[in-house]
């Protein structure tokens, strides 16, 4: 599988992260999005007329939407990431995949404006992103009350991976995550998953490393 990739793209990171979590090896093709705008070049528009990154290619299959790529990777390597057979759960996953597009527009828009100096109405994007974060915080808080950590099932699904990157990078767009304890707990659970990989701005959990052993004697 070939992924047309950009190290700073949260959507591309979703796919790298999902592939790492389910053990699929990707062949990465780096695209000079910033500052080169290579994703808008003729060659890449031939693959993806929308001119966006990432693009996933598996034989004849060309995917340009990250939600579709998550489904593809899960079906291929780890179907448990698609949730169980429950009707409501299946529908909820679709709900969150659609919700993740709002995150791309609002939190991703704020990030591109604030960090990469792209044109955009920053206060409006931040206001819309704040509404998204509050909705997610409320949903995750309800999950916590019934003893659950992840968005849909009693285990992580593609819904969590679809929403995680733009939320975790909200501070890049000037939106602090300090007011959202349930989101922060959820992000920590995702960062603890075996096989988790990082991207710039999303750090690994150093605190999970063994405590340094004190060289000092117990008593002085």
């Amino acid at each position: 599988m070939i992924l047309y990739d950009y190290i700073l793209s949260p959507d591309a990171y979703k796919i790298r992260l999902m592939a790492a979590l389910v053990g699929v090896k990707l062949e990465l093709r780096a695209v000079d999005v910033h500052p080169g705008r290579e994703h808008e070049s003729e060659a890449l528009r031939a693959l993806n007329p929308a001119g966006s990154i990432p693009i996933l290619i598996d034989g004849d299959l060309i995917l340009t939407e990250s939600a579709a790529m998550l489904v593809c990777l899960a079906r291929l390597a780890a179907p448990a990431w698609l949730g169980g057979n429950d009707v409501a759960d299946a529908a909820r996953i679709q709900q969150w995949l659609a919700f993740s597009l709002r995150l791309t527009d609002h939190l991703g828009g704020a990030r591109a404006t604030e960090m990469l100096v792209e044109p955009g109405d920053l206060p409006a994007l931040q206001a819309a992103g704040t509404i998204d974060l509050r909705e997610l915080e409320a949903a995750l808080t309800e999950r916590r009350i019934i003893g659950q950590t992840f968005l849909v099932a009693d285990r992580p699904t593609i819904a969590d991976i679809a929403c995680f990157p733009y939320v975790a990078l909200a501070p890049d767009g000037g939106l602090s995550l300090d007011p959202y304890p349930s989101i922060r707990l959820w992000m920590r659970a995702i960062r603890m998953l075996p096989g988790f990989i990082e991207m710039p701005g999303i750090h690994r959990l150093h605190e999970l490393k063994p405590e340094p052993v004190s060289q000092l004697p117990e008593t002085v």
């Binding site: 780096a30 500052p35 710039p200």
Partner: peptide, 19 residues
């Protein structure tokens, strides 16, 4: 190394510093 990879290596490093 491809130019894009050189750019991305440095962007990765600097973006780790940014936060």
């Amino acid at each position: 190394t491809a130019l894009t990879d050189l750019i991305h290596f440095q962007q990765m490093i600097f973006l780790q510093d940014r936060s």
